[in-house]
Nucleic acid binder design. Sequence first.
DNA 1: GCACAATGCTTTTCCGGTTCATAAACCGGA
DNA 2: TCCGGTTTATGAACCGGAAAAGCATTGTGC
Lengths: 338, 338
Amino acid sequence: MKRPTIADIARRAGVSKGAVSYALNGRPGVSEETRARIRAIAQELGWRPNLAARSLSGSRADAIGLVLCRPARFLGVEPFFMELVSGVEDELAASSCALMLQVVPDRQAEIAVYRRWWGEGRVDGAILVDLCAADPRVAEVERLGMPAVVAGHPSGAGPLPAVWSDEAAVMAEVIGYLAALGHRRVARVAGLPALLHTRIRDEAFARGCAAAGLGGHPVEHTDYTGEEGARATRLLLSARPRPTAIVYDNDIMAVAGLSVAQEMGLAVPAGLSIVAWDDSPLARVVRPPLTAVTRDVPAYGAHAARTLLRVIAGELPDGAPEPPARLLPRGSTAPLSL
Amino acid sequence: MKRPTIADIARRAGVSKGAVSYALNGRPGVSEETRARIRAIAQELGWRPNLAARSLSGSRADAIGLVLCRPARFLGVEPFFMELVSGVEDELAASSCALMLQVVPDRQAEIAVYRRWWGEGRVDGAILVDLCAADPRVAEVERLGMPAVVAGHPSGAGPLPAVWSDEAAVMAEVIGYLAALGHRRVARVAGLPALLHTRIRDEAFARGCAAAGLGGHPVEHTDYTGEEGARATRLLLSARPRPTAIVYDNDIMAVAGLSVAQEMGLAVPAGLSIVAWDDSPLARVVRPPLTAVTRDVPAYGAHAARTLLRVIAGELPDGAPEPPARLLPRGSTAPLSL
DNA sequence: GCACAATGCTTTTCCGGTTCATAAACCGGA
DNA sequence: TCCGGTTTATGAACCGGAAAAGCATTGTGC
């Protein structure tokens, strides 16, 4: 019932606690013979290092933190976070490091969580997501001295290492593709304007449209919900001249937009082309299936975790670039037919 | 930079470590005056109890575990887990207990995680989800002596307390509703047959159809993906006589089914009624919006967490019943028109 | 006025590992 | 045989907090 400790092992093996510690951690100080004997006994007793004791002396918590700062009802909708989390864990599993997850309503609460986690020694570092402009979290983790990496564009990461994929390039690809199909008026339904990556996409969108010689390129900002996506779509489609293609910042809004278009008597893709940012099973099951920008989100999470582990270990981040997102044409985009 | 310890506080306050410990934990043994002084100093220094040290003596980890055992690509799709997690955390926040999350590919890995977590003293207990028949996890946590609660039907929970909502009742309500609309042939697209709650719904479905005097009530099992939902729908709609209503075990399959029906020239709801189990933003944005069975998933998670905390504290589970799921009629169900 | 209890704080021990200083044993070479 | 150096092992300190035991001081009852 009671968990065995190294003292138990030491007694059984007839050696000291210290020897057991050396043996089980693969450090020099014991003979190979003794090491093997101690290992066997530990195995037999089913010994596991007590995390608390280990952190207490070693000051490693063997866990990293991830705080998601969005109301529950937004979180559930997007596969993004779950995929990110599962990628993070794939990476952590190898180093038997655990993941502490917390969902909070606002940025202030998130900072409080970091303070608590770090103060309590519960985590060795954290992954920051959903950066916004002049994000107070960056300064705070810096102040705390807590290792952290940003999953997002480096421009807001300050001194922190960032893991990110170049969205501007894909945005240009998307716009180029739509322009090649003959679309001259492309609109965008964007996410929360406070988020840095929304701004970056906004900018890339404007730049891409200009580069492709497209005229008006209206942008509507939303909170990522289907309701707002529908509202934005209605607004965009009511304008004259109305856009012939819309790029959505997530899949749920793209689906909502699809419904609104059909409601308004616009066939997709004949009357309106739709592109969803971030692919998901959802994009595949609606009719027509949605053309989407896809990226390997689990790999993204894994990369962020790997980088954080390096930072915690005092090494330099590998600086490897993220595999770029790709445009995946499906049935919701077609040449402009007028 | 360095985190303050109770020794630092003791030095500043001119008292012993023991007194500080008593003062900060609200236990008798120090005067109110001294307690206030110590508290003020702790506050000023920004002291937080070191979790490792605390667990080492108190043997509480102040964390609970949740293992999700589904491939990442299934997980991301369903809002269920994220909502569950956010509910769990709402409850945990109050007791400053943390959540350890792990996503694993299979049940064997899940058991290994429990062994590790418990052996390392990383968690005080766990919430078990997605129970299947004769689930090995129940026996394992029992063997380990790790506190646990089952989020699911008590029939598979063995000696463990279970938090669950009575799905049979809602299933009867759904079937009664469809029968009242004139449907005589209702089909069901179910989830993984190995999962206990799938079996329970299967049974409730059969019983409900029998009670309502409905004839054939075919059931197709799937893996919850849209692709399988589409396949099952095609299969069901190709049979003769074909069902006039289908109940889906999740929202993504319901949407896929909706697309398939429309593809096959069946208007929804005129030619086919659709009910989705578990509501989500997704169900609201498609056209027609889906009639759904809705339940308060965050509340469910919160209840599970609350129960686990009670078990850990050595108290009895409160045994409060879960608020029942409700049928939420929307546009995807209509009277049978022939 | 004395036994006894409550109060308020200190000292000590403990939790389960890690790590350092130290020492014994061993080794080859002079 | 003695010596410097390496290998192998030991004992004890330590990490930060919890809690039991110890010890004055003050208060209470009779």
